[in-house]
Design a protein around this nucleic acid. Structure first.
Lengths: 184, 184
DNA sequence: CTAGTCATGTAGCGAACGCTACATGAGGTT
DNA sequence: AACCTCATGTAGCGTTCGCTACATGACTAG
């Protein structure tokens, strides 16, 4: 393989990690290059432009996130809406997933202002989430799986927002309430 | 009153409108000044810095939003969690409120990256939302009002995110599902 | 009348941004 | 040996950003 192609892989992996830990605020070309251990000049030699860098790094993260979600809550078990809501909520507020959720809301906000490449990225990742959720809903118990999945996704994303504007304890209280309801 | 103080009021009102319609992406000092019909130089004569301008405009918007919410769903009627969730969800996806919700998630994302003055603003507005919600929950029907309020807020905010990453139809399906559940 | 505050304009600073032009050496091909 | 592509460095372009220094006319207080 090319040196260039090797570097593309190496750099994207490093940048995914960097984005996870610092968010989109530290994502200028120069900052990304420094985080990946290359010069900004070379970053634009490996990739077409900043949008490509961010798109690839976000896709890499989404892939990792999807794999972790698969193992954390396997699809062979179908749940009621309340039960899945509670379990998924506990998952996404876990310290393991929280950095991703933080980045996820930054990406959606960037998509909201139509900032490339986030409009596309956010659509893709959101779609992936919906598929993941719907695959875990028991059609026998859930009258409207697409509606239920959309509702659950909204709630999960909302928990990430709640953490920012309401703090950790509010999130825990919400998750506890969901678990209490999920037992019914 | 001073010319300066008159201008402060006038400019903030204009900028609240501007932020509502264009979001935070068109919010550089020069763009804000143009939207308010003044020079950027004068904007920084009327206000201390950009953070003050944004803070005041956001507070103005939050006030207007709060007033509209009060009239749209008066506090004298206490509801069950499911019923309030459904009613509030229908409210926030209304075209009247959607621009605010859009801006709201941009503000939370800015808060997430600790961008002044949004950390403070987001906390304030989020707190206001929680109070508003809790004041409409019937304590006789709701075992854990703070938890329920946090859950509802997460869901409402999440609907705004869902619109960005999943599109209008997904939001409508989620609201329909919530209304179906709210009838039970 | 003079002095000073208020309101506003002109001009620009220094930094960061995304991105590019150009040079250079290393290594392979003919 | 001549040439060419690849990988990399240096330097900087043009723009936008938040913000400021400085000047100037208008009005007001002593």
């Amino acid at each position: 393989m090319n040196v260039r192609d090797e570097q593309r892989e190496r750099v994207i992996t490093a940048l995914a990690e960097h984005l996870l830990s610092t968010g989109l605020s530290q994502a200028s070309l120069r900052q990304l290059a420094a985080a990946a251990g290359v010069s900004d000049r070379m970053l634009l030699y490996y990739f077409a432009d900043k949008a490509e860098v961010l798109a690839l790094a976000m896709q890499s993260l989404a892939g990792g996130m999807a794999a972790q979600l698969e193992t954390a809550l396997p699809a062979d078990q179908r749940l009621s809406q309340a039960a899945l809501t509670a379990k998924a909520a506990r998952l996404v507020v876990d310290p393991v997933f929280r950095p991703f959720m933080r980045l996820w809301i930054e990406a959606i906000a960037a998509a909201a202002r139509e900032e490339p490449p986030f409009a596309e990225i956010a659509r893709q990742i959101g779609e992936g989430f919906l598929v993941w959720i719907e695959a875990r809903l028991d059609p026998a118990q859930v009258p409207d799986p697409p509606g239920a999945a959309a509702t659950i996704l909204a709630l999960l994303d909302g928990l990430a927002l709640l953490e920012v504007c309401g703090g950790e304890d509010r999130v825990q209280r919400a998750v506890a309430a969901l678990e209490a309801a999920g037992l019914g």
